[in-house]
Write a protein that binds this DNA or RNA. Structure first.
Length: 367
DNA sequence: AATGCTGACAACCGCCGCCAG
DNA sequence: GCTGGCGGCGGTTGTCAGCAT
């Protein structure tokens, strides 16, 4: 009534910007337990000082267990290009054809990579400077683009291959040496283009598994960066396969933990000294592995949850083995894992992350 | 070594469509 | 049929790592 649309949330009462691992932990834990029937109410219920939309985006684009991360394969890129010709900027529709890929990710890939490639190709194909060429290839649903694409596609594929061999090969995952925070940028390093993309797929035991295959995307060259990703594999107690509806009914637990493809990953973890020195982490890693084969689930759901939560803590670097402070911090963190309590506070200024700690929490192991 | 540029991507913003009341 | 709330979508921005100079 003359008021206009009410804002989705009070901007002054919510945290904005990159998500901390503590927030991720809260969100994942809450959704795992309660699902996400009401995004607007979720932040308050989960003890998060975030906008519901922000929670939703964070979950869908990053925390959701079936999100496939890492560089796009040539097939995926081709699929995006093809679908974009017919669907235009309907990223969500395009994403629906690429299991595990989010609309945001596809949009980013298109805007930063594919669009330029197509433009370059078109210019090469039509050096006469036909003004229509660019729009025909880039424009969303132009039917005329099919002609150009059909002729340019082979070149595009070659170029994509070339680019993979050159561009991606020189890319390095971003180093978290001096961790400012646990923002997605650091966490997402797990799947940045690596110098051995082929190895990634070959290391996957279940790359053709239509089920969750996030693990196959893990950049094994930086296993320590895969903390969130791997924990989310493990956290997939529900059948997350059905995208956004996956956790709406928490009671439908399938106890499915698609972790098998991480065998090499865990072997690599074993070879890392700092992990070797961390008994808790190894213990939980082993528990995680055994859980994959169903062993751990014989101990009951509560034990599963505890194991998962402890694993979660370690994956997030909430290392309890260092000293008493950190141990008590772990206890505090564990409390936060029980959604009923919602006892600890998130608010953490970015500066607090500079030393790699959040308050008492040890974020990442220093290398 | 320092600086600037570029690419990549997470996150935000605002609009739209659906749906319940 | 109207209204408001909510989820979803697409466009845009901000930030930072890596690279080039």
């Amino acid at each position: 009534m003359g008021k206009g649309r009410a804002p989705c949330c009070d901007k002054t009462q919510v945290i904005r910007g990159p998500w901390s691992s503590a927030e991720d932990l809260k969100l994942v834990t809450f959704i795992q337990k309660h699902g996400h029937e009401n995004w607007r109410a979720l932040p308050k219920q989960a003890g998060l000082l975030r906008c519901g939309k922000s929670c939703r985006l964070r979950w869908i684009n990053y925390l959701r267990p079936d999100v496939k991360r890492g560089s796009f394969s040539k097939e995926e890129e081709d699929t995006v290009i093809t679908l974009h010709q017919t669907l235009g900027n309907k990223w969500s529709k395009i994403a629906s054809h690429l299991p595990g890929r989010t609309d945001n990710e596809i949009k980013n890939v298109w805007n930063t990579h594919l669009k330029k490639k197509l433009t370059l190709k078109d210019e090469e194909e039509s050096p006469n400077g036909d003004e229509s060429k660019e729009s025909s290839s880039i424009s969303s649903s132009s039917s005329s683009s099919c002609t150009i694409m059909s002729s340019g596609k082979r070149n595009l594929e070659m170029e994509l291959d070339h680019q993979k061999n050159q561009g991606s090969s020189t890319k390095r995952p971003r180093i978290t040496e001096n961790v400012k925070d646990s923002s997605p940028r650091e966490v997402s390093n797990q799947c940045r283009p690596t110098n051995k993309p082929k190895e990634l797929s070959s290391s996957s035991i279940s790359s053709n598994n239509s089920n969750i295959t996030i693990s196959s995307q893990v950049d094994i060259s930086r296993p320590e960066d895969d903390q969130i990703g791997s924990l989310l594999n493990f956290s997939a107690q529900y059948d997350f396969h059905n995208s956004s509806e996956e956790v709406s009914k928490p009671e439908e637990i399938t106890a499915e933990i698609p972790f098998e493809s991480d065998y090499d990953f865990w072997n690599m973890l074993d070879s890392l000294s700092y992990f070797q020195s961390n008994e808790v982490q190894l213990e939980n890693a082993e528990a995680c592995q055994s859980s994959n084969y169903g062993d751990a689930y014989s101990t009951g759901e509560e034990d599963q949850n505890k194991k998962w939560l402890r694993y979660l803590e370690n994956e997030l670097g909430l290392d309890a083995t260092k000293d008493e402070n950190q141990e008590s911090s772990l206890n505090n963190a564990a409390e936060t894992l029980v959604p009923e309590s919602f006892q600890y506070e998130i608010p953490l200024k970015p500066a607090e992350f500079q030393s790699g700690t959040i308050g008492n929490f040890h974020l990442w192991p220093s290398l």
